[in-house]
Design a protein around this nucleic acid. Sequence first.
DNA 1: TCTATATAGATGCAATTGCATTAACTCTGG
DNA 2: CCAGAGTTAATGCAATTGCATCTATATAGA
Lengths: 152, 152
Amino acid sequence: MTEQATPSPEAIKAWARLMRVSRQLIEHAEEALKEGGLPPLAWYDVLHELAEVGEGGLRPFQLIERTLFAQYNISRLLARLEADGLVEKLPVADDGRGQTIRITAKGRDTRRRMWSVYGRSIAELVGAKLSVDQLNMVSALLGRLRHPPASD
Amino acid sequence: MTEQATPSPEAIKAWARLMRVSRQLIEHAEEALKEGGLPPLAWYDVLHELAEVGEGGLRPFQLIERTLFAQYNISRLLARLEADGLVEKLPVADDGRGQTIRITAKGRDTRRRMWSVYGRSIAELVGAKLSVDQLNMVSALLGRLRHPPASD
DNA sequence: TCTATATAGATGCAATTGCATTAACTCTGG
DNA sequence: CCAGAGTTAATGCAATTGCATCTATATAGA
């Protein structure tokens, strides 16, 4: 656990597992969405954040903070979402540079349909593989790898 | 732990942590490599596999199995690696379609230099955050999420 | 107020990825 | 031996990502 230039075998193994498993899970979920004729995971992430905050919406830079997507990525993703009528861009009164992004009814509907597929993937790939205690253990351990570390 | 269409809150949280943490770690490692003027992680994955098997080399389809990259992705990645002189493509005697990919001396050197940066990231981001027992716990839990599940 | 600096978001262009297809070869059954 | 099916790898083209830069507005300081 001490800082080293060369990681311990245990650290390497944990890292390798994390890389491989996350890639596999993402690929599976992405594939399930595609099979359902639904948009990719990235769209879900944004729609989810927007659905959670409701009518107030979010500024693009807030979405960047929450989703970890790059600025140019969000900019273009929002353009696509808007083109599909899933979100709307509103000017913001006290800052002429900015805009507020709000999810539309169609956006909520799409998010719901995505969740029915995405949620099933989560249930199958994670929920069905570990007990509740084990899931909590995973969350806690991964929480310590997060930046900033999670307390729980 | 029973199969459900809607995942438990614990499963959702574990999934969310996994997605976020893996993204963050990859981003950090990728950034460190870039700052060192080194190629991206994907190159390391391939060079690592090739370095491990030695002079015998690997067929592209074997790299696909090991790295989980898509076929077209490997095909083009190998073209770039070859263009940089990091690997060489050899015809394979008993299968006229195929080729064997072998890492070159320059490839080994690049891999080593990448590891000096990549390894440090692993040590800092994972090794320094959890005890050996915790690292083993992470590996074991994630191993059960893998497909096929790992035994250890 | 005016200038310099910082922040919000968009965009041109190059590199990469994803999708579908293709080319070349191998294998199997008749 | 041959036709058909399968496997291995490459590639044309569209979509996305990454990088650097740009525009517009806001804010701080002289």
